[in-house]
Design a protein around this nucleic acid. Structure first.
Length: 257
DNA sequence: ATGGCGCGCGCAGCGCGA
């Protein structure tokens, strides 16, 4: 039985609910992590999601941030936040579904390298390394997914010279990403041959999507046990097309379990 | 070229995202 894991920054679930429901019906993921829901928990569309066949766990706030985990099977041990990193921003939600531990991250953007928000991002990433290390120790079958706001390598950037040293591409951010790989996580997308210039985010401006001026910043990271059974991973560019798309495309990985 | 688009909030125009 294949098991499909996905992640998608929806940039407002209020606006994107019809697209999400369409995407779920077409792609049938077993578990999906959502970011930037921008909804207080009382406003989460749990009924609509349940009607689509998914249990929802959500951890949101109005206007900014907000994460959710939707799953076919019920989730247990649902855990918001990183315990060692108290934060007003709602960016982390973890849950156990079947024998999979599933962590949904919405990593801070960082704005620019001279911003306080960048320092916050680096502190957040450091805490996330400790958090992932701990989760890996507890759960051998671990998936860490989300909008990581890091393009890990130059091949994940449409114009590496333009982006060199810019937020999302700095050495410090990339080192944090490599630290997660150093703990044993695998970048599911890079387990397979992929098209050149494959990205998951494109600016709304300047015809960035039609020109494929994007970055690959949304990731599915798998523990060794899960990576061993990963059969495919792709970015669904289709979902970035049409009226009122999110600026991010979903990423979906298939495990043969 | 520091804008450009889209979103939330809330009713004008700003902060934020990446």
């Amino acid at each position: 039985m294949p098991l499909k894991l996905a992640t998608w920054n929806v940039n407002s679930l209020n606006v994107r609910l019809p697209r999400l429901l369409d995407w779920l019906a077409t792609n049938q993921p077993d578990i999906i992590g959502l970011q930037e829901t921008k909804l207080e928990d009382a406003r989460f569309p749990a009924m609509e999601v349940a009607a689509a066949g998914y249990q929802a766990n959500f951890y949101g706030q109005r206007t900014y941030n907000g994460v959710a985990i939707l799953s076919r099977l019920p989730a247990t041990d649902v855990s918001p936040d990183m315990p060692e990193f108290p934060d007003d921003h709602k960016r982390v939600l973890a849950a156990t579904i079947g024998d999979i531990r599933f962590v949904c991250f919405y990593v801070p953007n960082g704005q620019s390298v001279t911003s306080d928000k960048y320092q916050y991002k680096l502190r957040w990433l450091s805490a996330a390394t400790d958090y992932v290390r701990n989760e890996l120790g507890r759960f051998p079958r671990l998936a860490v997914v989300g909008d990581m706001n890091i393009a890990p390598e130059d091949r994940d950037v449409h114009d590496p010279d333009l982006w060199h040293g810019q937020v999302l591409c700095t050495d410090a951010e990339r080192e944090a990403f490599r630290a997660w790989l150093g703990l044993g996580l695998k970048d599911a997308f890079r387990l397979f041959d992929q098209p050149e210039k494959a990205f998951s985010w494109w600016d709304y401006r300047q015809l960035a999507f039609p020109k494929n001026h994007g970055l690959r910043i949304d990731h599915i990271l798998l523990s060794p046990a899960l990576a061993a059974s990963c059969a495919s991973c792709r970015i669904d560019r289709q979902a970035r097309k049409g009226e009122k798309p999110s600026d991010h495309a979903p990423v979906i990985a298939e495990l043969s379990v």
